[in-house]
Amino acid sequence: MKLAFILAGLTAVSHAAILLETIDLQSSSQTTTVWTDLSSANATLVPDSGSGSMSVAGGFSASTGLYSFAGDYSATIAQTVGFDIASVVLQVELSPNGAFPYDGGPLLTLTTSLGTEQLAASLYAAGDSELRSGTMGPTTYTAYAWQWDLSSYGDTITSVSLETPFAVHSSVTAARIDVGDSFAPVVVPEPSTALLSLVGMGFILRRRR
């Protein structure tokens, strides 16, 4: 069954070959960091905009994007802000090797007065895909998005870290993190899948244009 993206109040990013979305978290404070070049031309992984940071373990910046020939790898995105975080949305654009999401990820790490916690996403969707020509031949890239609801935490959360695992030979070309000070669902399940969402399963989604 085909999966598609529904993100409330979003419009497509205009630059060519980028499948990620511009998001309005409906928050009084929102911070966004975007990476559209994860290739060897940007080996230090400097974002296009925003103050977030990215690091890679087990992989490297190849001619197209993040990659690994030798084994599985992961990318970690960290964001620190000057307000209390209640909502986090992570998007990645990649060509996965095999099923994705992979190995139970991504996971969000936060630190409160009770210690450090790792949280799975509250909402998930797979989005638009595009077939591209490259050095490895025709390759299909797809956008994926996850959202975390942190509004129930009484502690002040001003920084988060998100680690996403990837299978060997997966190619990651772009990423985006949005954080806001209030929570509104941006990934909306179909009515028929509402029960599945209660037990943490995936959403069957339709794109609203």
Rank of each mutant, 00 (worst) to 15 (best):
K2T: 12
A4Y: 07
A4K: 12
L10Q: 15
V13D: 14
H15I: 11
A17E: 15
I18E: 12
I18V: 15
L20Y: 04
E21A: 06
Q26W: 13
S27C: 09
S27F: 05
S28Y: 08
Q30M: 04
S40C: 05
S40H: 08
A41S: 14
N42G: 05
N42R: 03
A43C: 05
V46K: 08
P47W: 07
S49L: 11
G50H: 12
S53R: 09
S53T: 14
M54W: 01
V56S: 08
G58E: 05
G58M: 02
G59Y: 00
S61M: 00
T64G: 02
L66F: 00
F69L: 09
I77W: 03
I77M: 04
A78V: 10
G82R: 08
D84H: 09
S87C: 10
S87Q: 14
S87Y: 07
V88K: 02
V89W: 08
L90D: 02
L90W: 02
L90H: 01
Q91T: 03
E93I: 00
L94D: 09
S95M: 07
P96Q: 01
A99F: 13
F100V: 03
Y102A: 02
D103F: 00
D103S: 15
G105H: 03
P106H: 09
P106Q: 10
L107S: 10
T109I: 03
S113I: 03
G115C: 01
E117T: 13
L119T: 10
A121K: 04
A121L: 04
S122H: 14
Y124M: 10
A125T: 11
A126G: 11
D128G: 10
S129H: 07
L131S: 15
G134E: 13
G134L: 06
M136R: 15
M136H: 14
Y141Q: 06
T142L: 07
T142V: 11
A145T: 04
A145G: 09
Q147N: 06
W148M: 07
Y153R: 07
Y153F: 09
G154C: 07
T156K: 12
I157R: 11
S159Q: 15
V160N: 04
P165C: 05
V168F: 12
H169G: 03
S171N: 13
A175F: 00
G180W: 05
S182E: 11
F183P: 04
A184D: 12
V186A: 08
V187R: 01
P191Q: 04
S192R: 14
T193P: 04
L196K: 12
L196F: 09
S197R: 14
S197P: 11
S197I: 05
V199E: 07
I204M: 05
L205N: 13
R206P: 12
R207A: 15
R208E: 13
R208K: 15
